[in-house]
Design a protein around this nucleic acid. Structure first.
Lengths: 202, 202
DNA sequence: GTCTATACGCAGATAGAC
DNA sequence: GTCTATCTGCGTATAGAC
């Protein structure tokens, strides 16, 4: 895995600098928020000049996007694996626990992900925010031979929001036991969307 | 304590300009987010020069804070009234419905409130974020002669987060029926924190 | 109270030498 | 690849005339 760049440079490792820049960007955003991730500060943290930074990356905005993408990819990989390890019946609960667990293990990724929507200004397709979880909920109900639930969109949005609330609290107060909270939330799932009745109108 | 400065100026209306500035600030933030609430844009929207704006307000930061305070005060007043109109047993549900209803009636206030934590950077006492709702939950359980619940902090954080998730969706997709979602969420409350068992460990 | 003009800082980005 | 120097734009805030 030599990273030398003379002739015969392995084509797989050209972007070592870029990786480093993404790494320091994640650190900056994770520790001090997006406003701190400025060209000057990124350069300083990487031990380069501003011009050099822009030699490796087209723009600051692109770098921020790349940092976010990397965090997201890592999150999806880990949560996805945890979910697939569970039986269909327990996947919603596994999702909740894996999601909260991920950010507890990677505290710096928390702000990168949570403030991305606001600072990178991606209104984004709302659908992709709640649909994955909605799908898990639906599959779990089917596996339990329950009838289709009332409003999976709202259920998924509410659960996702609840996760965010717990993560936010863990960030503000690191002594907060988010692991236990995740267990509680997963348990509450059983008595609502995954119960025979599902979310009910009244 | 007369604040008059001209002959016969009604003492109750000294800060008309300030009120106007707060109003346009809320409009700007509500429609385009905090980054859009710049001195220049505020001045333009108010029909003043930048210098004039700063004649009525000490700084842009102070103006942003004032705008947020006003939104918050209005929210607290309306939700507080709705909650007090309900019996102790139904106050948590009333809270959820009033909260979501408020932002549906005042769409512009949504971003002002939701992005405040990020942009005005108030780590704030975490306690005051969840404690009011936790108190309502506790009172409701008592009124129903139920034993104390497991973890009211987590319950309140989860419910608060769920509300945020629903509000966010309403903002992204105005056709989303957040009123119905509020009803569903309030209903789900009954089967979890307000049920005989309360949130359970497993 | 209101304005124009100006100062100042900091952001992102480019030019061009080494 | 890396640097220094520079440009440009935008943000806040102040000075001082009217």
């Amino acid at each position: 895995m030599s990273t030398r760049r003379g002739p015969g440079r392995p084509p797989g490792a050209p972007a070592a600098r870029r990786e480093q820049l993404i790494a320091v960007t994640i650190e900056l955003v994770g520790d001090q928020g997006y406003p701190a991730a400025t060209l000057g500060r990124i350069a300083e943290a990487a031990g380069l000049s501003k011009a050099s930074v822009l030699h490796h990356v087209p723009s600051v905005a692109e770098l921020l996007a790349a940092a976010y993408e990397q965090v997201l990819a890592s999150l999806v990989a880990e949560v996805g694996a945890a979910v697939e390890d569970a039986s269909a019946t327990h996947r919603p609960g596994a999702y909740v626990i894996a999601m909260i667990g991920y950010f507890r293990e990677h505290p710096r990724h928390t702000r990168v992900a949570s403030e991305a929507l606001v600072h990178l200004g991606r209104p984004g397709e709302s659908r992709e925010r709640w649909e994955p979880l909605a799908r898990l909920l639906e599959q779990a109900r089917t596996a339990r031979r329950l009838p289709p639930a009332e409003d999976l969109r709202t259920a998924a949005l509410a659960i996702g929001g609840a996760i965010d609330g717990i993560l936010q609290e863990q960030q503000i107060d690191p002594s907060y036991d988010s692991a236990r909270a995740a267990e509680l939330l997963a348990g509450a799932l059983e008595t609502t969307v995954l119960s025979p009745l599902g979310p009910r109108p009244r």
